[in-house]
């Protein structure tokens, strides 16, 4: 920021200020969501969405203040990596949380995955009990291999 800025400088400073403040509010929203949401998966919503936008706004503010063209590719790469990694991490945490029953079923209006997981679990238990490797297995959602 330049003190006593006029004209274009003042406009850029004003835009930067707005971007920084809105970005900070978004990060604050993520924090509030983590505290206030009742279960793991709603918290994952809070941890992914406002934070991605918050980072974007803060990066844009940095770009405006740096006034160097080379900073834009660095910022773009940083944000693209964020876009690519955030859904994956949210998915992994959500998946693990669902499997380990870190959820409140009473908060779900519909759960179409439960039956699938139960069926797969039942099948696994059955196979173990009977020890028959040749049993026909239904391919369903609860057992995607590590491929």
């Amino acid at each position: 920021m330049t003190p006593n800025a006029t004209g274009v400088d003042a406009a850029i400073d004003a835009v930067t200020a707005v971007l920084l403040i809105v970005g900070a509010i978004m990060s604050l929203g993520a924090a509030i969501g983590l505290l206030r949401f009742p279960d793991l998966m709603s918290r994952m919503h809070a941890a992914t969405k406002p934070q991605v936008l918050g980072l974007f706004l803060v990066l844009a503010a940095i770009g405006l203040q740096m006034r160097e063209w080379w900073v834009w590719p660095v910022l773009a790469v940083a944000w693209i990596f964020q876009l690519l990694t955030v859904p994956v991490s949210a998915h992994m945490v959500g998946r693990a949380g669902y499997r380990t029953r870190h959820l409140h079923p009473e908060l779900l209006s519909v759960d179409e995955l439960e039956a699938v997981v139960l069926r797969a679990a039942g099948q696994r238990a059955e196979e173990k009990a009977e020890g028959e490797p040749g049993m026909p297995r239904m391919r369903d959602g609860a057992t995607p291999g590590p491929d």
Binding site: V86, P87, H91, D140, P144
Partner: peptide, 13 residues
Amino acid sequence: SLIPGSLVVEVDR
């Protein structure tokens, strides 16, 4: 996962 209100929990390939 990034647009409003949804998150992928499980993928059946």
